[in-house]
Design a binder for these strands. Sequence first.
RNA 1: GCGCUCGUAGCUCAGUUGGAUAGAGCGUUGGCCUCCGGAGCCAAAGGUCGUGGGUUCGAAUCCCGCCGAGCGCACCA
Length: 791
Amino acid sequence: MLTAVSAWQEALSAEIQARFGVALEPAQIPFTFPPKTELGDAATTVAFALAKPLRRPPAEIAGALAGTRLPGVSEIRTAGGYMNLFLDRGWAVERLLSRGFLPAGVEGKIIVEHTNINPNKAAHVGHLRNAVLGDTLVRCLRYLGRKVEVQNYIDDTGVQVADVVVGFQRILGWKLEDVRNLIALMADFSETSGSFLFLQELIDRWHEYWREENLHRFGLNGLIPGQACPTPFPPAYDFFHGAMGRFDSFCWGLYARVAPWYALSDENKQARLDTLHLMEAGDNDTAEMAALIAEEMVRCHLRTMDWLGIRYDVLPHESDILKTGFWASCFEKLKASGAVHQVPAGSEDKNRGCWVMALQESEEFKGMSDADKVIVRSNGTVTYIGKDMAYQLWKFGLLGRDFHYRPFPGAPYPIWRTDAGTAMESSPAGEGATAAACAPSKASAVLSKASAASSESVILASEARPESRAGKEGFRTSRNDGMGTGAAEAETAGSTGAAALAPPHFGAGAGVYNVIDVRQSYLQKIVKEGLRQMDHEKEAERSVHYAYEMVALSTKFVRSEMEKGAHFELSEEELAKPFVEMSGRKGLGFQADLLMDRMKDRALAEIESREPELAKTDRAQWEHRAEALATAALRFYMVKYNKNQVVAFDLEQALAFEGDTGPYLQYACVRAENILRKAAEQGLAVPDPADPAALAECAPHFDEEGWGLLSLFMRVPIQVKMAVDSLDLNIVARQLYDAAQAFHGYYHHFPVIQEPDPAKRAARLLTVALFARLLREGLGQLLGIPVPDRM
RNA sequence: GCGCUCGUAGCUCAGUUGGAUAGAGCGUUGGCCUCCGGAGCCAAAGGUCGUGGGUUCGAAUCCCGCCGAGCGCACCA
């Protein structure tokens, strides 16, 4: 089906050919929007483009073309060289509702990889930017009709996990069993955490636990010489180590203490290497502890992101890339294509003995002093970049191998993780490898249901709509409310045996987006170059690094925290800069869950000040609304900036609910729906936008301002396309914000229910109804922002 | 040294790919709730778009130079 804009382009192209004898590709005809809606619904500047070849002034050309008949266009008015289109309003509304302004869809599955947090500490605001941008991209691609698979890569074998293991074993002196107990205790806490309502209770239980049985057993006090922190763990709702009662947060604090501990002696440093070796060897307590920590950490991260409506389809694990022989296959291909060569061991080259990829031939890397990139070290081990190339090949279905898969246990929704296949035989879980992997959990039940429903079309977890994904408690679900999957699925869990589960066919995408911050641009370029050198030019072209700038902490904010007693190793020079980079290793950052707690607390207070009764009568509703507000505030904050803008995180700015914020957009929607509700209560008929008769009746009575408001939504599909093409997703946020702002102005100036003229009133009710529907849809589908019924 | 990015109102940022009078939010000042919830609306003040050249009907946007800032350029991930 021809979309509106392309139909206009073709008609104009034909007209230009006929009238001026100039051949202009339809796609070359530029369509934009007038700066003010009263100037028109859409505009083209094609007359300017024709001025030069025709040697005639733009205004004259525009005038000559103004009579062109375009589908759905009732009039073309010229203003200088501009040609402003006024649409037939009934036609336009119909198109708005049927997505008639969407560009034509494209076939082929797109793989989006995002989040990718090292599973050794809590997520911080920088990870949130990654996840929100990644998820928003996914939503935009789906809106445009693409099929999307979402991957969250888990590096469960690296030094970061090893460091936390060292922290537990060597600094705290804990055994595998102690970590297991801690996780069990924390999991219990996690069910209720996330609100100040429960905070004191948590802190009390926490202190009781440590005081009564564990504090002196583990000898936790004053453990690390040379550390400024007087106690190993903060006593209360401490700012930077905060979010008490959460395992990921506990590890955040612990991890920050490992680097100083390494600095104490060479012996300590050796612990990292020893740990890495044990992890690699497997079949020992250290390796098991690492796996335990990584898995629980991923669970924490999944929950954090799920609260924001961010989901994944599959969790590729680095350990499985290694165990499944991905690298061996990739290495063969690299060697066979001549993309890598070995530097002779006897040479003077600093890379002697390594397998390197030569980059000097490539335009992208010219001017580099050292144009060779080491892929395999002289000791025969593969670098990160090599593993990433293998992963990238798999994403495009070029590797000739696949993972095995199993449900990821204990996730807040059904999700698959990779598996090495044979590794399960030696799994310590013991009770028969296959049965353990496919145990009848809620997750596997839902997954088997999904695959039973259709062996061809697979329901991906990340495709679930906000409306259906959240239980009745709303977005922020915890473990005890049905895992957010709804009651129906949960009921079937018990009756489903260890049925043969068929995971969807992961990987083999037609295009790939890697959402990774800009600091990795160089490495991502090399991965792309690797594809090219392996003669996969087409895939290299379709391999997109979505690079965005980092989130740092504004020094203003850091200073204010230090004045409140927070402790950081920062020089005066660093504090003189506008912002400081976050560092998990230093414990310098702001944890995601803590930010969300703060937002929720702020929202709870705001709601209570407006509706004091609610807090007393319906706490669940109170919290539900607060969570929706927090999600909106956070997601909008993360997406409203240009991707090239360093976000200097400032708590006060992030916590704002007024002005250019998520709640402002929700408020517009809530007010609109409230007007409709009030109208219905008073017995007024609200015209149904989908009813052609009602539409025909109302269309002549739209006020110009109301129409201008609705016409903003015609821009959305085009803006989304533009946002995806440029990866500047703030365009989408901005567009919906503009619409919300226009509505606030509109209803202040135009009474709806009070309007005495029935025809005008009906048209205004229709305007409000359309606005509410389009904004709610846009916020949910594009930005992942839920709208509560009331605020 | 080489490469990438940024510099727009007091502050934080937009600016629809070169187009219409450079716009929002915060903050400041002054108005607006017996009337669809004030998380809102209206108005005022606030700009040499870092700077100097160039390209053309037209430049915040493209090109070149300079000034200032950030990030990359490992046998780390």
